[in-house]
Amino acid sequence: MLDALEIVTTVVVGVMVGVEFSVAFVINPILNALPEDSGQLGRAHGGRMLGAVMPFWYIGSLALVGIWAAAGWHHHGAGLVVTAGTLLMVSVIMSILLLVPINNRGKTWTPDNRPADWKQQTKRWDGLHYIRVAIIIGAFALLVAALA
């Protein structure tokens, strides 16, 4: 049973990392290169779509890692799993305090109602997102190492 939990958790976290990596290094650069207001409208739509899913994914990933840590406490790699959980907790706190407020504003923006500093807010979100991606990649790497 622990083996199945380890595999499911690693896959769930790994796919989340892939999505967030893709947002940072594929989707947003594509949106930024679109003409006129298309990129901002695309970001607003992405903020609504992913903003609805990611809270469950982040909390669910953290919960799975917590269950793995508890169930495998006396097994090899438990310290790595706990450390991965700590990193995921940091990513959740960072998301709630820093990224979600910007996303909640950005997902409502249109060319007619966006604030004058919308580009600065978008750049701030991107910078924070790069840090969050690095954190969750670290968590994922620790989970993979715990399996070895």
Rank of each mutant, 00 (worst) to 15 (best):
V53C: 01
R132W: 00
L64G: 03
L147Q: 10
I96G: 08
A44D: 01
I67P: 03
K119A: 13
S38C: 06
A146I: 13
V19N: 02
P35N: 09
T10K: 07
L142T: 06
G79I: 15
F25T: 08
V144F: 09
R48H: 08
W57P: 03
Y58A: 01
I96V: 15
T108N: 10
G46F: 11
M1N: 07
W57V: 15
T86S: 09
M1F: 14
W125D: 00
R132F: 00
W73T: 01
W57C: 01
P55D: 07
W118P: 04
P55I: 06
I135N: 00
G42K: 12
L143C: 08
I137R: 06
G85D: 04
G106W: 01
S38I: 12
A78I: 10
H74E: 09
L142Q: 08
A78Y: 02
M16F: 11
L97H: 06
D3G: 03
V100F: 10
V15M: 08
V82P: 05
M54L: 12
W73D: 01
R124V: 05
L80K: 14
A70I: 15
A145W: 13
R105N: 09
A139H: 00
L62A: 14
A148S: 12
A139I: 10
V82F: 15
L99S: 13
L128F: 14
W118H: 15
G127Y: 12
I30N: 03
D37L: 03
T110H: 08
S22M: 12
V17W: 05
L64V: 06
I93L: 14
I30G: 03
G66T: 13
I136W: 04
K119G: 04
A71N: 02
T122K: 09
P101H: 14
V26L: 15
S91M: 09
G60V: 10
